[in-house]
Design a binder for these strands. Structure first.
Length: 421
RNA sequence: GCGGUCGUGGUGAAGUGGUUAACACAUCGGAUUGUGGUUCCGACAUUCGUGGGUUCGAUCCCCACCGGUCGCCCCA
């Protein structure tokens, strides 16, 4: 038997309805915020991610699905969407449009070669938005609000929004220097990973869980203390906007995002619902001023976020929230004997054409078994057709909940059901 | 990529080095020639993730691989 590749999953009936529901809700919310959908390819030139996501990131260094096609081009299954959206923005000259800022949303599978575990797949689905062309902190707040509103509208309550500012280029330079100076004397006491981070990306040392309790960690210089006036004002304004819309948040000066392109605003939304293991991050995002230029576009600020549908569904389950899906049939048509076969089929179609959700038996089952099937499908009505009904052109209609049944002329059947349901 | 743990029917799960692999749910058939969600009776794994090895003999022991899961790393 051929099994599916590691880290992928089949989404089967019973679950697929949840996916459809969640995606539909997201699209609806994006429309209300006036974000429009963009669809970009699932694979791109490898170089896009190397330049866009950053060569030093884990994603690029060890998690990409990269292959050469028959024309010997190096292509990569997208590990995230921001780089692709920015590429499309530049290539299609969306910056030239009168429609600024460009507010875009997307929905699709992403691919990362990682060791799978619950909530971490090699193919996973992200919903996200990108807003390009504005550096007003109000739009940062809007993006964060959109994310929080989405989760809340689905009924989630165990949410934790964490925000931080990574500052602008100047702030980061100063902070970086301070970090290196601060940690260098303690170099030998830090874990092996941190020793490497200290050279490559000192900011990440702050994110370490192993050395979390090291005294040097607590006294480490905080990025927030190194922000330029401008960056500080920006962060303060963002907080004011969030406060004004009653979005609760924690400021965590150790929040560092894994991709190179982030600056200023960074945020994560986590779930502290009981039962979650190591993975609690539901979504994350931030500002990426400079990325458009890095990808050969004109100077354009941007901010966005992405959320994982897999983790969202997990969170809903952990909180015991059931989505309003899987409604039953309006009508199940039971047919008995050869004479009823064609009339039953015809009536089934007629009911469907009138907007009703209808099914019938296709296994030539006995009446009892057909009723069980109707039950399994939570049918509100059963229409019974046998020799007698065909003879008189009258169906026997049974309302399942009450058990009451009546004879109804074939040509009155649609109307009868529509008025009774 | 590293470490731990697990892998028995559609599902949840017992079990043992030796020819009957429990049990429950689901499913199907019957009791009840045309009526469901109740009850009773019956059926349902030549097979225990895959491959190899040890053995007279392995689902049970050993090895490898595959897959799930947990932790680390990192993230969505």
């Amino acid at each position: 038997m051929i099994r599916l590749p590691r880290g992928t999953q089949d989404i089967l009936p019973g679950d697929s309805e949840k996916w459809q529901y969640v995606e539909a809700q997201f699209i609806d919310l994006c429309r209300r915020f006036n974000y429009q959908e963009i669809r970009t390819p699932i694979f791109e030139h490898t170089e896009l991610f190397q330049r866009g996501v950053g060569d030093t990131t884990d994603i690029v260094q060890k998690e990409m699905y990269t292959f050469n096609d028959r024309g010997d081009r190096s292509l990569t299954l997208r590990p995230e969407s921001t780089a692709s959206v920015v590429r499309a923005f530049v290539q299609n000259k969306l910056y030239g449009s009168a429609n600024q800022p460009q507010k875009l949303f997307y929905n699709g599978p992403m691919f990362r070669y990682e060791r799978p575990q619950q909530g971490r797949m090699r193919q996973f689905v992200q919903l996200g938005v990108e807003a390009l062309g504005s550096k007003d902190p109000a739009i940062d707040a809007e993006v964060i609000t959109l994310a929080m509103t989405f989760y809340q509208s689905l009924g989630l309550t165990s949410l934790k929004l964490v925000i931080n500012s990574l500052g602008d280029k100047e702030s980061r330079e100063h902070h970086r220097k301070a970090l290196v100076e601060h940690f260098n004397p303690h170099r030998e006491e830090l874990c092996a990973d941190c020793q490497m981070r200290l050279d490559q990306n000192p900011l990440r040392v702050l994110d370490c869980k192993k050395d979390h309790d090291h005294p040097a960690m607590k006294s480490a210089p905080k990025i927030l203390d190194y922000l330029t006036e401008e960056a500080k004002d920006y962060f303060d304004e963002l907080k004011q906007y969030l406060d004004a819309s009653h979005i609760k948040y924690d400021v965590d000066s150790n929040l560092v995002r894994g991709l190179d392109y982030y600056n200023h605003t960074a945020f994560e939304i986590m779930s502290d619902a009981p039962g979650f293991g190591a993975i609690t991050t539901l979504s994350g995002g931030g500002r990426y001023n400079g990325l458009v230029e890095d990808l050969d576009g004109p100077e354009t600020p941007g901010i966005g976020f992405a959320l994982s549908v897999e983790r969202l569904l997990m969170a809903l389950e952990k909180e015991g929230i059931t989505l309003p899906v899987n409604q039953g049939l309006d009508v199940y048509v039971v047919s008995l004997g050869e004479k009823a076969a064609i009339p039953a089929y015809r009536l089934t179609q007629e009911l469907r054409q009138n907007g009703l959700k209808v099914d019938k038996d296709y296994l030539n089952r006995k009446m009892k078994a057909q009723f069980k099937d109707a039950d399994r499908n939570q049918a509100q009505f059963v229409v019974i057709l046998g020799d007698e009904e065909v003879e008189n052109q009258q169906a026997t209609v049974k309302e399942m909940e009450t058990g009451a049944q009546e004879k109804v002329q074939f040509d009155k059947l649609v109307q009868y059901i529509q008025t009774k349901r």
